[in-house]
Write a protein that binds this DNA or RNA. Sequence first.
RNA 1: GCGCCCAUAGCUCAAUCGGAUAGAGCGACAGCCUUCUAAGCUGUAGGUUACAGGUUCGAUUCCUGUUGGGCGUACCA
Length: 550
Amino acid sequence: MDIKEHISAKLKAALDSLGISDASVVLERPKDVSNGDLSSNAAMVYAKREKKNPKEFADSIIQKLDIPDGLITRAEIAGPGFINFFVSDSYFSSRLAEILGLSGHFGRLDLHTEETANLEWVSANPTGPLHTGHGRQTALGKAIANLLEWTGYKVTREYYYNDAGKQMDTLAKSVYARYRQIFEPEFPFPEDGYGGEYVIEIANLLEKEHGDKLIDSANDVFKDAGEKWCFDSIKQTLIRFGIKHDIFFNETSLYESGKIRKTLEEFEKRGLSYKKDDAVWLKTSELLKDKKDAQDKVIVKATGEPTYRLPDMAYHIDKLNRGFSLVVDIFGADHGDTYKEVLAGMQGLGYDTGKVKVIIHQMVTFVQDGKPVKMSKRADNVYSLDELLDDVGVDVAQFFFVMRSANTHLEFDIGLAKEQSDKNPMFYLQYAHARICSILRNAIEALPDYKEIKVADYSLLKTEEELNLLKVLSIFPEVVQSAANTYEPHKIITYLNEVAENYHKFYHNNRVINIEEKELSYARLKLCEAAKIVLKNGFDIIGISAPERM
RNA sequence: GCGCCCAUAGCUCAAUCGGAUAGAGCGACAGCCUUCUAAGCUGUAGGUUACAGGUUCGAUUCCUGUUGGGCGUACCA
């Protein structure tokens, strides 16, 4: 029995008998526990329409509610006209049994079980290792993919890349120059070349294997070697993060399958494109007519090569045609504007872009000792994501990147992240989990029968800390749903902080293992198990480990 | 110039569709370990939610304007 539905149904019935038949009722969890377990603003919303005083109207609603019943102990009016509901302890006890029963499935929702989602992220071109600038997106995507799965979606993780453009040519020339320099140190390095150490490493590997035999080889040899090395590096970093993409989608395949040509023809047919100065322009000014200063954009250059917009549109059309119920992209703020053009172009061709959800995350500043860490592109060696993982560890990196809402700037404090102490916010959560594991280990020693106990008498859980913990644990599924609805994994972290806080308070004031009171010990141990389940499930979603000892 | 995002405690950030006394962590100060992990707990101090208006029973949240910051604004991706 879902308590929200129960109260909601009662409220609707009460409003109906007062002559409001179309009521939509919203129940909130008050921040302050003295305002009850659930609260409705219905009286305030409808009092105006009924031209009544909100408090008096609230009172007439309560008269019709038939409370107390088995689940609700009382309802009272508070503040400007809120109706606050107090739920019986026995309801929460029953939720404890549910958490223990569902265990690793507690919090999983069946909202989208028949649906498929495609999540595309990272999508860095193979011209170098992933750097810290890719970190936020990498971590965010990992957590969002998990969130989607927890709401029932079958998720395809996808990586989109282009190994044909100008940037690959630059990589090839850079590798060649470094290779040639092994034999002729004065050989000039291209001005716009990639100056990173890794290019030298690739060149050295080629020299090791082939000696100087490649000096007259074609560009492609160096391009292929560079691409392979870079992709290996990228995939290796993703594996460290625990990420495995199902599909690596090559932009080139869109040319080979004719999908780009077809998209272009469609624009032409619908009069949405025109030729000017030998280039093909898309009428984005018309497609984005709600925007004042939208300019037409080139989709095919005078050289005959498409700009990135055209393949992007063909790619998204392809994703929709593959039948996904939901198509999610994650981009950094530096791509913020372009996706609007892409969606507008697709709409112009009659595609339903309602299924496409674009998540834009703001940039990250890395801070060490209060000073920003330089990541300038001019410097030849950027701070790579691998180095960050070496410095702070995978869990901490994942946690810090996901900790904050995506649409605000993120300050990543490397000093704090490195700190293996109570200052580090991640350890507060993991510590709670380790502490529970420790108690459960001790329980088996102190109370050997505990292993056999499947169900305890949960009505023994009566202290304020016990009940508060229980209440927090029981709302986990709602938190998952809310986080998934808005694609915001940081909400899980905010919530887990509350769980950990309530657990530590419970632990501090309630002796769990007590040989003198076995029944109470069993009930409290079961509560510990439930807290462990919720923490572990939350960690799974945000993508960090659940250590049993710390 | 124009577009998108942002501005909340000394610092980093939360805040349910617009809800009640705006909350955490760090930092500061004062306490709590002969009992299950002190990476913990308890308490104190710290706020005109950038500013000015508007909408309403109620605004950190929505609207308008101003100021300040980030990112864009390519026949680069």
